[in-house]
Amino acid sequence: MAEYGFYHLTRTPLEQALPKLLGRVLSGGGRAMVLMAEPQRLEALDAALWTCPDPDWLPHGSPRAGHPHLQPIWLTTEDAGPEGAPNGARFLFLLESTQSARLDTFDRVLDLFDGGDTEAVAAARGRWRAAKAGGHALTYWQQGARGWEKKS
């Protein structure tokens, strides 16, 4: 079962919070798959990751660029296959209320949602219930004044 963390964005937008989390994965030698709902948002995030200041280097790719096995971060709108992420990622980032039928192929799942969007919060609660019923180890993180704070 995956360690499943819910990340409640309350202080910064996704475009600022996500690069730092991805940077932590890369600095630990990990690989990540980022699952998004909309191709247009994927393209916007792709551009934003190339120009983000912190961290200043987030090597990544998407189906448009191809060669997933070469990409430490894989941006996609497609769920992982039976063998897992196409880039061998063990970290899955779920954005835009996406869900994966392949949680068991990842060590860690990070589900980011906007705390200012009541629909996103309600959808996250539903995903929490489903992940709990699936036997995953759940954690809840919320942005605080000093960064991410683990809540009970």
Rank of each mutant, 00 (worst) to 15 (best):
P39N: 02
D114Q: 08
T51N: 07
D104F: 11
R127K: 07
L22M: 04
D111E: 11
W148I: 07
L112V: 10
A37M: 05
L35C: 03
Q143C: 08
W57M: 14
A137E: 15
G66D: 06
V25G: 03
L21G: 01
L18V: 04
E96V: 06
Q40W: 01
Y140I: 01
W148G: 02
A120N: 00
A37H: 12
L103K: 05
Q99K: 10
E96M: 04
T139A: 13
L110E: 06
Q16A: 15
L138C: 10
D117F: 04
E119N: 09
E43S: 12
S152E: 15
H60F: 07
L26Q: 13
L138R: 05
W57S: 10
P53I: 08
R41L: 15
W50F: 10
V34G: 05
K132R: 14
E149A: 12
L45W: 00
V34K: 03
H67R: 14
L112C: 10
A130R: 15
L58D: 00
R41N: 13
K132D: 05
L112P: 01
L21I: 05
D107H: 05
D117A: 04
S97P: 01
F91Y: 11
F91V: 12
A47R: 15
A130M: 14
K150S: 01
P68Q: 08
E78Y: 02
L75D: 01
E43V: 13
A101D: 13
A65E: 14
G116L: 04
D56H: 13
F6T: 05
H8C: 10
A85M: 11
T76Q: 06
R11K: 09
P39M: 02
L75N: 02
A122D: 06
D117E: 11
N87L: 05
L22S: 00
A122S: 11
W128M: 04
E3I: 13
W57Q: 09
C52N: 12
G88S: 03
H60M: 10
F93Y: 08
R31Y: 03
A48V: 11
A124F: 09
W148E: 12
R11F: 06
H8L: 13
L110M: 14
D104H: 11
R108E: 08
S62H: 12
Q40F: 00
Y140E: 02
A145I: 13
A47E: 12
L95N: 06
P86H: 02
G23F: 07
G116H: 11
Q71G: 07
M1I: 00
S152P: 08
Q99T: 15
P72R: 00
A85V: 07
T76S: 14
R24P: 01
N87G: 05
H60K: 12
A123Y: 01
P39R: 03
G81I: 08
D46H: 14
P59E: 06
D111V: 07
Q99Y: 08
E78S: 07
L35Q: 08
G88K: 00
P86Y: 04
R146G: 10
H67M: 13
D114S: 09
H67S: 11
L18M: 09
R129T: 12
R31W: 03
M1W: 05
